[in-house]
Simulated assay, not measured.
Amino acid sequence: MLACGVDRPYPRGHTQLITRIAEQGLVIGELPPGDHPTPSRFIVRNRVIAALTRGTVVVEAAHRSGSLATARAAQRLGRHTMGVPGPATSGLSAGVHELLRGEAVLVTDAAEVVELVGDMGELAPDRRGPVLPRDLLAPGARRVLAALPGSRAAPLGEIARGAQTTDDDAVARLYELRALGYVERHGDGWKLTRQAMISVRGGRSRC
């Protein structure tokens, strides 16, 4: 979509690219042949870009930006408007963040864009953090592991209460966890190993 006549490729450095697009696809413009591009014509052109698409994604935009003009035109037309957040200290993120404070949807990759503008049922994959060894434990064993204090040994009764289970079930889980290297006996109590302390802290920090 050009902001000038279709017989005037702009920018001139992209003449070969625009010619190839014309041969294999379509080059369009609102202005009659021979018209030159001007700053105001780019703003006018952007509303047509918004109308031709199912949605507009703004990746970088200052507070005064042609990209914001396109996004606002898309909103007026009822199209999806999306933004990719950037550093809070960057002036090129300011316009995107302004959109996201309004009606725009935050997206981070192509799959999330397709989920909004694609066909029904095209959903972005679920996002999950890295799988830790403790994530592979049975639910009962994970509860017992989480019930152990991080810096001291704990008696069986305290662990069972923390895991909301019986003493018999807790002791069975503790022996299972000991075989896997997560806990060790300390007198009459049980204590996390160094490996388990790293795993448990990592899991709690994500909650």
Rank of each mutant, 00 (worst) to 15 (best):
I49S: 15
R45M: 09
R178K: 14
D109P: 05
E103M: 09
V44Q: 14
T56E: 14
R64Q: 13
R101N: 11
A3Q: 06
H63R: 15
L116G: 03
G150P: 00
R178Q: 15
S205T: 08
E184G: 00
E103R: 14
S199W: 02
D135I: 01
G13H: 05
T193A: 00
A170K: 12
G162C: 07
D126P: 07
V200L: 03
P149V: 07
K191M: 08
Q24L: 11
T108M: 09
T89Y: 09
S151N: 10
M120Y: 09
A138I: 00
V27C: 01
T193E: 01
H97C: 04
R161M: 07
M197Y: 01
L132F: 02
G121T: 05
P149N: 10
R79N: 10
G25H: 08
A3K: 05
G29Y: 03
E122S: 06
M120C: 03
R178W: 02
G189D: 01
V48K: 12
L2P: 05
G181D: 07
T70F: 02
G55H: 11
T166D: 13
L77C: 02
H80M: 03
E30I: 01
V200N: 02
V171C: 12
G55D: 15
S65K: 05
P133D: 06
T165D: 11
A147C: 03
R173V: 10
L31C: 02
R178I: 05
R201M: 09
R204Y: 03
S93H: 04
V84H: 08
L2I: 06
E122V: 01
D168K: 15
H80K: 04
L145Q: 06
L106T: 10
P155W: 00
E60D: 13
G102A: 15
L177R: 13
I43W: 09
V96E: 08
H36Q: 10
S205C: 01
A3P: 15
V183T: 15
G13P: 01
Q164F: 10
P37I: 09
E115R: 06
D126G: 00
R194E: 11
L123N: 07
L132G: 01
S90E: 11
V58N: 08
A69M: 08
A71F: 09
A160G: 08
T81Q: 04
V44L: 13
E184P: 03
G25S: 09
L148P: 04
R194A: 05
Q164T: 14
V6Q: 08
L192A: 00
A51Q: 14
D126N: 04
G157F: 10
V105T: 12
S205D: 10
R72T: 07
S90P: 04
T193F: 03
D168C: 06
R72P: 00
T56A: 15
R41D: 09
E184W: 04
